[in-house]
Design a protein around this nucleic acid. Structure first.
Lengths: 194, 194
DNA sequence: GTCTATAAGCCGATAGAC
DNA sequence: GTCTATCGGCTTATAGAC
């Protein structure tokens, strides 16, 4: 069926774009390179996407749910109180960052590249992604009866995104464990004053 | 004198590059654009710099000391204990981030763009810059007799760089004040257990 | 929906004159 | 040290056939 084939082609293009954009950066990767990696011609790519900007947005949109679910899985499978479970996210992230292909957070790196285009569709997708994580964490902390769970969720997010940036710069994943300790300290402090 | 003229021309090129690279991103700005903004021809630019990569490194190198001194000034002119003085850095940064031309941290944005070139000269300059800030803060905290001042300095750095990334994404400088509160909490906690 | 072919222009970098 | 002029290649995007 033509529709099914179209959908599958589109997926292959997004998948190839995701691999290249994440590995090399958005502006460093040409539309030609994405088309070739996907095994289609440029004309086919432009049939499925209006522009390169449209393709960038599709790349980030495809990473939204998988990334969120990974964080939630790491939280869920860590045993202990909520501070320990949050610290588990940082520990797992440090492990992931030791993989040679790790290149930081695709959402943050894209937003850094598109800093001069605040209204870019990809910027809105990235902002919404980070907000979803913050809201999810807010709920987890509020369930524990923590006062100021909203502020605390933001502080953990700041430590998380800070560790993405710093580890990308120094190539030293131990900063992520240090960030996790800080997050656990702040949460424990809040728990102790319930 | 020819030497003096050469030096001044070089400075004008670096200054024009800094303005454009920071405002629009490294890969979004062409060598032609930098030359035109500096009021020289491309041939003159290539007389002073071996390559665009060389120019990028000169841009970041020129921002190293001014940025560090700004942070130190904000720390020095804030009244109070060391936790309050560190929080003063975040408060001043939040004020700076409200300027319409603010586009995050040039060092972090450059490292995000060059993530696929770990050995790039600009990456080493950026990493050294952040390390200098961390070391300076480490000394300030150690002077206060804090145990684990090295870990604490890293956690403040993580909050600082996290706030650069998050504020750039959401365009909401209040995250910087939230990060400053977290930094102050962590420092106060360490002070109380001396 | 996918192809071949190409437009129109910008990219980093260089040649050679003065 | 700065200029004019230009190279070869790559860029996003499109025309038109099937």
């Amino acid at each position: 069926m033509t529709m099914a084939a179209a959908s599958s082609t589109r997926d292959r293009i997004v998948s190839a774009a995701a691999k290249l954009f994440y590995a090399e950066g958005i502006r460093a990767v040409s539309v030609d390179a994405v088309a070739e990696a996907a095994g289609v011609t440029k004309r086919t790519l432009y049939y499925h996407f209006d522009s390169k900007d449209d393709l960038i947005a599709a790349y980030l949109d495809g990473r939204d749910q998988p990334n969120l679910q990974l964080f939630q899985k790491w939280f869920a499978e860590t045993e202990g109180d909520v501070a320990t479970k949050v610290e588990g996210i940082f520990r797992n992230l440090a492990r992931a960052a030791r993989h040679p292909k790790w290149k930081g957070c695709g959402f943050l790196r894209t937003s850094a590249e598109l800093a001069n285009m605040p209204g870019h569709p990809a910027m809105r997708i990235a902002a919404a992604h980070k907000k979803k994580f913050e809201n999810w964490l807010h709920q987890r902390l509020e369930t524990e009866g923590i006062d100021g769970a909203d502020v605390l969720a933001r502080q953990v997010l700041l430590l998380l995104d800070g560790s993405f940036a710093v580890v990308l710069l120094h190539r030293d994943p131990s900063y992520m464990e240090t960030a996790g300790m800080a997050a656990a300290s702040l949460i424990t402090l809040a728990l102790s004053s319930r």
